[in-house]
């Protein structure tokens, strides 16, 4: 049963947060929670999309972008975030990279009962790495994205935004 909130997170809202926070590059691997952003991001002239084939690559690319003065955003799924453990440790935490990771929260349910182990381990993984995170489910939550950007800059650490809103047909 899908218990997503009635008011969804619109891709225009997320794109607006990216622009507001000066994102220059989106380093990403498509997933079912964030694919509705693709066409909008592609059409946005201020953004350069960097597609990766494995999520850990996104961490090292973002580290290089940040070291070179750009402002990357990482857009991946929770499964890929878990795959990226060593890159998160070495390239982002190890080099003190102030970057926001928007992470599709596959398997997320508001009541917490899920059959998907990707959801079961997501927050445990973040806690184990000491990564702070914010949940975004709808447009009303979108200001938390700016909170995450501010925190990343202030702490010189990666900060995670969990996207708890599955694909609902905007990518058309």
């Amino acid at each position: 049963m899908n218990d997503a909130p009635a008011i969804a997170l619109n891709p225009e809202t997320v794109l607006g947060e990216m622009k507001k926070n000066g994102v220059t590059h989106v380093v990403w691997l498509p997933d079912s929670e964030t694919n509705w952003l693709y066409l909008l991001m592609q059409a946005e002239p201020s953004l350069r999309l960097v597609g990766v084939t494995r999520e850990g690559h996104a961490c090292a690319i973002a580290a290089g972008l940040s070291a070179g003065g750009a402002k990357p955003l990482i857009l991946i799924q929770n499964t890929g975030m878990m795959e990226s453990g060593d890159s998160l440790r070495g390239w982002l935490l190890g080099l003190n990279i102030p970057v926001v990771l928007m992470v599709g929260y596959r398997g997320w349910t508001r009541h917490g009962v899920t059959q998907d182990s990707a959801a079961t381990y997501t927050e445990r993984f973040l806690l184990a790495f000491g990564l702070n995170y914010y949940l975004v489910e709808s447009d009303a939550d979108a200001p938390r994205i700016t909170v995450a950007f501010d925190e990343a800059e202030r702490t010189k650490r990666p900060v995670v935004v969990l996207v708890g809103d599955e694909y609902h047909g905007f990518n058309r």
């Binding site: 690559h57 090292a60 990357p72 390239w91």
Partner: peptide
């Protein structure tokens, strides 16, 4: 050195795109 093995080319790509 070796922040995390398997990432040097990605890091350098990021630098190249930024500069």
């Amino acid at each position: 050195g070796d922040p995390a093995m398997g990432g040097h080319a990605c890091f350098a790509l990021g630098l190249a795109l930024a500069r």
